Computed example of a mutant assay.
Amino acid sequence: MPKGVRLAAALLGLLALAVVVVPLVVQLDQQLVDLAAAGQGPSLAHPLGTDEMGRDVLLRCLYGLRVSFVVGLVAALAGMLIGGLVGLAAGALGGVADRLLMRVVDGFSSLPHLLLGIFIVAMFAPSPWAVVVSVGVTHWTTAARIVRSEVLSLRERPFVEAAISGGASRARIVRRHLLPHLAPHLLLATVLMVPHAIWHETALSFLGLGLPPHLASLGNMINDGQRSLLAGDWWSSLAPGLFILVPTLSVSVLTQHWRDRLNPRTRSELSL
């Protein structure tokens, strides 16, 4: 395994362990305000300093990463479910149904994701479910294209043609021959969508349209930290930014390695 992949796995595992263990050991009061400790720089008591309200930045980053990861994972699963069903139907049915469904996919793909997401969350009060709906509705088209492409490829395989020649029903072909081969690609596409969903949630929270302002969220923390930059409190914005960048880059490196293992032919062609 390459060193970069091992490093990404170690960083992601360390962050996952901290996100799971720290909230169980140290409880965070979301409404806590300690003005006497406001704006303190990194120290032994507060490794990443405190924000303008006197709250520990490291602890809030860990809570915010947990919230962002859960919201991103649920949103990615929702987008994959919608896109997977559309792509499977388009590839399996073919003909007019395929052309009609792909025109719908093209229509959604032509819309700016962030603007459409803002429009969707603006119809609801700030909440995690509003972000999940926003990301799921705006990011299912990529999954639909991936699934349709794989289904069209599988339909040309000899074992599928043999099943069709043997009189197998369309439902049986999908259940017994298509879904088992699609599962690894669906899982990979879902994992790849998680970092994108986290960035989307962070952007919405930064604009004040995502999670409630009092909730520890990486987007909310960056939004709050930009006011502290004028006072020289750089850590209030840098820390949540790093907590977004490091896990998303780590996931990207691991999924790229996973994709190369699933498709060794593509890897060999790219290396030529």
Rank of each mutant, 00 (worst) to 15 (best):
L178P: 00
H181D: 08
R170L: 11
R170Q: 12
M193G: 13
L209G: 05
R172Y: 02
L178F: 10
L186H: 06
L182I: 01
F206Y: 15
M193D: 12
S169E: 09
P195C: 06
L204E: 09
L187F: 15
I173T: 03
L207E: 12
V174K: 02
P195T: 09
A189D: 09
A171N: 01
A171E: 05
R170W: 11
P180N: 06
L204D: 08
L178H: 00
G210Y: 14
A168L: 12
L207G: 11
A189L: 00
E201A: 10
L182H: 04
H181M: 03
A189P: 00
A197R: 07
L182M: 04
P184E: 05
L182W: 02
P184L: 05
P195A: 07
R175W: 15
H200Y: 15
M193R: 14
R172G: 01
L188C: 03
G208I: 09
L211D: 06
L204W: 12
R175H: 13
R175M: 11
L187M: 13
L179F: 10
L209H: 07
M193F: 02
R172V: 02
L187P: 00
G210A: 12
H185Y: 15
P184F: 10
A183M: 11
G208F: 09
F206S: 00
V174I: 15
R170D: 04
H177T: 07
W199A: 12
A189S: 14
V174A: 03
S205Y: 12
L188T: 05
E201H: 04
F206G: 00
L204C: 07
R176Y: 14
L209N: 07
I173E: 01
